[in-house]
Design a protein around this nucleic acid. Structure first.
Lengths: 197, 197
DNA sequence: CAATTTATTTTGACCAGTCAGTATAAAAGA
DNA sequence: TCTTTTATACTGACTGGTCAAAATAAATTG
């Protein structure tokens, strides 16, 4: 029974995600979600406390998923450079694949200031991101190819660079620029790490 | 008379801005705007075609204002380092002063994908930002303290770093971190510029 | 096994409230 | 007086959330 409920919950979250990608966070209605999930309107209220509850859980799901994919990508690599490359490639995954994820994530970001839960979820996401940065830095220090004096600050800066590049890429929304921003981001991070090849 | 009209327009835009900072972009109503401007609802509809028109003009006003303040800050400085410092200081201006500007800007960013006008306005803003970056880079190259091979790409990366740092700072929303992010951003950009002191 | 009861899930009509936009009235200014 | 500007009233569309009733599934009993 709990299995069925969990399945329904996921189904509704996916519908909410799809609705959000196509209509934008704020303008999504409970009816939209129900339509995308192919159920009637009441179901959403049966499985979720209210609309806000749906979106809170969706935000958590999205940030967790982004992190897990990133973490999985770097763990497949042995070297610092390999990890960093895998990381950036995952962030700038081919147009359309993860683009929607980051678009909806940006939607949520703009809501963080109005919602304490969102802020906490995002804080957790940041901490996950920083841990990825630390892992890459430590590996690079071990290999003696990076020169970093403040590991924590550098890990934070890496994510700043990634988010900044990602957003600028998303905003310009030109598939031609995909490679450009991925490369620019990657090379900037190498400089921040004072990479000596 | 045209002067009076222009004044009213600005008054309404300011009211819309204030409403947006306090209630968030999407949930602002025409009534809110009228209330903040201390006029009746009819006035807004008299001076603007519709709600979307108000926000489009507000977005243009905000991005222009952010750019102008940044440009003014760096033009007061002679040296590359002076310009860069002034630039970053302007971006990370004391909590509350320009914070609201960037918050509302972020609100607009999340709407760019649904609105062609927003996209164009933001594209123009980016170009202005990049021109600031170029100016600093050129100055630093003249002084022979930076080492940059692709000026354009580096100018873009500088703004990525700024936006990324800014957003992370805004999201964490802890006044204690103000200095931290300003410094981290500044130092990262120096590394991207391969600054040799 | 079949009949019946109970529990769970789903439906869609409905309500009270909000909104953008319009229409109209009032006021101010030329 | 006539035009411009501001205030108020109204409308029609849409929203989130509620709820009683229907449908379905599970459990119980004879």
């Amino acid at each position: 029974m709990a299995k069925k409920a969990e399945q329904r919950r996921k189904q509704i979250l996916k519908a909410a995600f799809q609705a959000a990608t196509e209509k934008g966070y704020e303008s999504v209605t409970l009816q939209d979600i129900a339509d995308y999930a192919d159920v009637s309107k009441g179901v959403t209220n049966y499985y979720f406390k209210n609309k806000s509850d749906v979106f809170t859980q969706l935000f958590e799901w999205i940030t967790t998923r982004i992190y897990e994919k990133e973490a999985a990508s770097i763990s497949e690599q042995e070297t610092a450079i390999g990890k960093l490359e895998a990381y950036i490639d995952r962030v700038f995954i081919s147009p359309e694949e993860n683009k929607n994820f980051y678009r909806v994530y940006l939607d949520f970001l703009s809501q963080v200031k109005n919602n304490v839960s969102y802020k906490e979820i995002n804080q957790k996401f940041y901490e996950n991101c920083w841990s990825i940065g630390r892992e890459i830095i430590h590996q690079g220090l071990e290999e003696e190819i990076f020169e970093v004096d403040d590991v924590e600050q550098t890990a934070i800066s890496i994510r700043c660079m990634i988010d900044g590049s990602l957003i600028q890429w998303l905003m310009r929304d030109d598939d031609q620029l995909h490679d450009y921003y991925r490369t620019a981001c990657y090379e900037s991070i190498l400089k921040i790490l004072k990479y000596k090849k």
